[in-house]
Design a protein around this nucleic acid. Structure first.
Length: 107
DNA sequence: TTAATGACCTATC
DNA sequence: CGATAGGCCATTA
């Protein structure tokens, strides 16, 4: 299993209504320093259907700037659609919607 | 093989 | 608090 596969596996496991940071995905994928690789992996995104890249944000809860598969506001719409709340800054509420990785409360 | 790039993160000024 | 620099890893040319 190559690096990308593992990353995709983790991203795919993100439950609806939750978000994960690049660093967290990288950590769960096996190496905490794959944050950039995660971004690259999602950039090439071979299966955008099965891979919810819109649920992946930066560690600060901010949405990626280069995220433009349909507009920066589209990502907000998608997340809001899944029940994710946003702060006044336009960032995701990490304290409540950050996926821990182990607990799939949504199942 | 070397050099360059990137949807990041952390530390420092 | 905003800007800058360095480090990290895998992929591509």
């Amino acid at each position: 299993m190559n690096t990308f596969e593992r990353i995709y596996e983790v991203v795919r496991a993100i439950p609806k209504g939750k978000v994960a940071s690049y660093g967290l995905v990288a950590l769960l994928a096996g190496n905490p320093r794959w944050s950039r690789v995660v971004g690259y992996a999602l950039h090439v995104n071979p299966e955008p259907i099965a891979i919810p890249c819109h649920r992946v944000v930066t560690k600060n809860g901010e949405l990626s700037k280069a995220f433009a598969f349909g507009g920066d506001n589209m990502q907000r719409a998608l997340l809001a659609e899944e029940g994710v709340e946003f702060l006044a800054d336009g960032r995701v509420d990490m304290e409540r919607f950050l996926w821990s990785g182990s607990e799939d409360i949504y199942k």
